[in-house]
Amino acid sequence: MLHIEDLKVQIEGRVVLDGVNLDVPEGKTHVLFGPNGSGKTSLLMTIMGFEEYKVLRGKIYFRGEDITGLPIHERAKLGIGMSFQRPPSVDGLKLGELIHLIGCEEDKVEEIASEIKFEHFLNRDVNVGFSGGEIKRSELLQLMAQQPDLLLFDEPESGVDLESIVLIGKTISDLLKERDGGGRRYCLKKEREKRKRSGLIITHTGHILDYVDADEGHVIYNGRIACEANPREILREISANGYEECLRCLTQ
């Protein structure tokens, strides 16, 4: 599904990723760990195609197609979607209107919003004055309308209270599940063949692992992927020894 080769990325003159190789096969969900500033968000933003993340070297392939030079919206159209950690707010644009613009049928908007208990926010301006947890739900609702095949989550559980994390975890798990023909439950604009979803999730706490079947974990350290292992093992290791071991791994 996603294949990244020797990626080197610079933002505002500073190299943030250097020599990243990554494979997320169809139907698999991978988890990204790493200390603050290690390059996790940069990797997701580069996959999504944000221009300020300048690719100096390397390639990104999505379902075999080289998307390294594609603009953001074309990647979205191909089936890549992202839940942002700190999305901007859009004054005057109602969340419900955005959900419809993304592709959800107008009369289904309220129904999908109620699944994530967010129907009371449809009449609010997108992300304006939303709390941390509300932003996460707003992001997930947008992905529910978008129904991408590759889902990128940037710390979906940060700033979320324990009660809401159950709902958010279940929703993410649901988004990552395989859909049968027709694909979009609510947004049947495009008929789709049976297709497996893939995910790439950034987490600090690992809470999300209680809800999502993650197949593999990676640690990013100083803009490079330091290791690949069972995500729970990585989490245990980091909890016990911090990221020092990763540095050792990288320099070996």
Binding site: M48, G49, F50, E51, P71, I72, H73, A76, K77, G81, M82, F84, P87, P88, V90, L98, L101, I102, G103, Q142, Q146
Partner: peptide, 10 residues
Amino acid sequence: NYLMARGLTE
């Protein structure tokens, strides 16, 4: 960019 990431053109 945010709206483009949801599939809207510029």
